[in-house]
Each structure stands twice: as C-alpha cells, then as structure tokens.
C-alpha cells in the first residue's frame, strides 16, 4: 500500500485497495479542490447571512476563492460560492430547526440559531442522511450550558425527547413477543427485550404536554429533495414550562406508524429500564418495587395490567 499525505486516516485506508501512483495523484488533486470548497461552505454566515469576508489566515476571502472559482459577467467568484455557503447553512439549519422545534421554542430564535451554528460546527453531518444530524445534541448541550442559560435544564430535556422522537419515527423494530413464550418460561429465566425504537426518559419538566402545545405550529417539508431554498423563515412563539414536583417518567414510542408519548408510573418505568438493561423478568420486577410502598398483591396486579398494555402496544420483543 502506498503511503500518502492525502490518506485521511488509518481506518479509511484499510477499506481502500491500493491505488497506482498516478491514481493517487489524481485523487489528491480532486480531493484538494473538494477540501477547499468544503472549507468555504462550512464557515458560518455573517449576521447578515452572507459569506465571511475574511479568510482563516486574514486574507480577503474573495482573494482565496478567486484562486479556484471563476467569476462570470454578473457574479464574482466570492458571490458564486456565497450561494453554496448560504444553501449549506440554510439547509442544515432548516433540518435542525425542524427536528428540534421544541428546543427552539424554549430558547427563542436568536439563542437557538447561535446554538445551532455552534453545534453544527462541532458536529457536522457525518452520514448520508440528515436524519442523524441531531444525534449528538444532548451531549453537546450538557457540555455547553452557557449556550442555553438560564433554561439549560429545560433545553436538555426537550432535546432528549425530540431526539427520542426521531428514533421512534423510523428506528428499527424487533418481532413482537409471542404471549405464549411468557406463559411457558419461568420468570427467573425469562428475559424480555424492548423495542429499540422506544426511549425511556425520566424528566423534571412536562415536555410531553409542552410539545403537544407546539403540535399545531409548523409544517412538513421535502427534507431530502436537495432542492435549493431562496431564504429561511423565522417566526416563533416562546414555549414555557415549569418543573414538576416529582419526576415524570415517559416512554417515547410509536404505534400504527405514529409517534406517541406515554407517561409511566415510577415502578413501571424502573421495571422497563431493568428489562432494557438485560435483567430477567423476576429481577426486573423486584428492582421495580424495591423502593415502593405498594402491597405485594397490588404490585402483582399492577404488573399484570402493565404487561397487558405493553403487549398491546408491541413494546416487548423476542
């Protein structure tokens, strides 16, 4: 295998068969142009939504881009690349805004837009699908409370629920559990799996109710069409919420191909979390009621009821 500065990482090198010297030079040349143009695209827009006039090294951006982009009789090299720079940010910000409408409504337009730009600079898209754009947002918000203060806790919880909605929408599903298999297996041997598209959350804020208030705002768009957009919309009503006195336990799931929230009793939540962690049914039930004052007979009845509902909802899997 030939060594070259253009090979980006050992991991990538492993997957690519050896190229001839000539091919490698060609690759470097094409990659060089693509790296240069992407550097331009990934630089955030100015406050007036234009391309930044100054390059990383202090030179005028116009001078830098004119080295590889031709002007025409109507547009300078700078103006021609500015179209792509704008489209990159408007497209990604549009998708991000659509996936995290709740976070945006909690923070307000200006703060959300600043957060979005910071996030997308730190976590640009690394997959072919824009669906995954927000996969690192919760961790990013936890690491950067200064971007969401003074509503950081609410913003983080909102982001957790909204990312759970993305997973619930099209996440993988396992075959639903056959009720016969529960009846035939002793509880201490029975291990149940939960649907991977379902997310279990413990929250301080009534995010589910807050998102319901938002539901009638906004509309869908053709998110993967790659059609260009002429401008970006910006209108918003702020969303407010107070923390609950006791934790809220929420399952974000799907049924009949639609995404739903379902509030859970604390014991039910603990039981499901234990099952997801790989506990047997017997151990999960025991851990669910370890801190509970519920009488044993009542607990047994509640477990029966929960399982009946969970089976109907298709949450339990083989």
């Amino acid at each position: 295998m030939l060594k070259s500065k253009s090979q980006p990482s050992a991991r990538k090198t492993e997957a690519i068969p050896a190229l001839s010297k000539q091919q490698e030079e060609i690759d470097r040349s094409l990659r060089g142009i693509q790296q240069m143009m992407s550097q331009v695209l990934f630089r955030p827009l100015t406050s007036s939504e234009g391309m930044q006039p100054e390059w990383n090294d202090g030179r005028p951006t116009a001078e830098v881009v004119s080295e590889f982009i031709k002007p025409n009789d109507r547009l300078t090299s700078f103006e021609r690349l500015e179209i792509y720079n704008q489209q990159y940010w408007w497209r990604l910000l549009g998708v991000f805004q659509e996936d995290f409408r709740g976070v945006r409504a909690v923070l307000g337009i200006r703060k959300f837009d600043k957060l979005a730009v910071e996030y997308l600079q730190a976590h640009g898209s690394t997959t072919w699908s824009v669906r995954d754009l927000g996969q690192h947002l919760v961790g990013f918000l936890e690491a950067h409370p200064e971007l969401t203060a003074p509503r950081s806790d609410l913003a983080i919880e909102m982001a957790r629920v909204e990312w759970a909605k993305v997973i619930a929408f099209d996440g993988p599903a396992l075959p639903v559990l056959d009720p016969q298999s529960i009846a035939e297996t002793p509880p201490d041997k029975l291990k149940l799996r939960l649907q991977p598209y379902m997310t279990l959350l413990e929250l301080r804020y009534p995010i589910d109710h807050m998102l319901k208030r938002l539901k009638d705002r906004g509309s869908t768009s053709a998110r993967a069409s790659n059609a260009m957009s002429g401008s970006r919309q910006a209108s918003l009503r702020l969303l407010k919420g107070n923390p609950s006195r006791s934790p809220i336990h929420l399952a974000v799931h799907r049924r009949q191909f639609s995404v739903y929230y379902k509030r859970l009793e604390p014991e039910a939540y603990r039981l499901l979390v234990a099952l997801r962690g790989g506990a047997s049914l017997a151990d999960a039930c025991a851990s669910a009621f370890s801190d509970s004052n519920m009488p044993e007979t009542q607990a047994a009845e509640r477990i029966r009821e929960w399982f009946q509902v969970w089976m109907q909802l298709g949450w339990l899997a083989q």
């Binding site: 980006p8 040349s29 094409l30 790296q35 143009m37 992407s38 489209q87 690394t126 790659n226």
Partner: peptide, 17 residues
C-alpha cells in the same frame, strides 16, 4: 469529503482526473 457531508449537489471540476 473526509467523512463530512454537505447534503448539497456540488459542481464538479471538469477535469480528466
């Protein structure tokens, strides 16, 4: 390029390479 996606249809340099 280098694992980072633009989600745009960017023009090619029309070169033999």
């Amino acid at each position: 390029v280098d694992g980072r996606y633009t989600h745009d249809l960017l023009p090619m340099p029309y070169t033999w390479e």
